[in-house]
Amino acid sequence: MTVNNSPALLEIVNLSHSYSRNGGAEPVLRRISLSIRAGELVCLIGRSGCGKSTLLKIVAGFLAPTQGQCLLAGKRIVKPGPDRCVVFQEDALFPWLTVRENIAFGLGGSSGTQRRLETERLIDLVGLEGYGDYLPRTLSGGMKQRVALARVLIRSPQILLMDEPFGALDAQTREEMQELLLRLAQKRNQTILFVTHDVQEAVTIADRALVLDRDSEQIGATVPIALPRPRNRSSHDFQDLCARLHALLRQP
């Protein structure tokens, strides 16, 4: 996963965004620049309301920035597309489709057998064997996020955007999902931009953590996380990094 010499896949250049509110403009992001290399897993951490979701929405193409631009593999991002898929924090599965149909949704009108094979492969990949015919409302939160992951992986996005995807899960399930994500990321050499406010989570999965600062509305710090994998949560280095990120988050 740590690919030091690969070229930048996602480049964010001088990006600012403000929401208009009551006629005025409320700045949320100010002149942000960052780049993510292919195969890298980058965590974006920051306190609530600092604009993490906003940044992710801009990269996804759901929101046009007021200034600056995002480039994916050199091409400017203007609208949503299957090369940049999002796993949302909330449940955004289509409630009238089964697990299998939700996962196959992104394949659109491609041919029958090919489609079925690919869907089954992804069901197995995220560990949902036997749940293909379930409706989302009958699944637990963790299983829903597995479906959400599978339905975007089926499109083989160049970059996977995840907005606090495991935030609503209990600690045990969250760890399972983190392991699943790491396994998949390694296997597919998947580039991931992962938003979280959980410092432990960032140190567990990331190659690099970016701290988004609420007051300056900028990236306050970049912290490389060079711990060997699989990571040991009780190790000294792990705890040190957590403490360091905590301190960065708490800074006024």
């Binding site: 996804a60 609208k79 597309g81 999002v86 949302f88 955004a92 949704f105 339905r151 975007v152």
Partner: peptide, 13 residues
Amino acid sequence: APIYCQAGAMLGV
């Protein structure tokens, strides 16, 4: 909710 339309759009619809 917009999130469902966004989900559709990112999946290529």
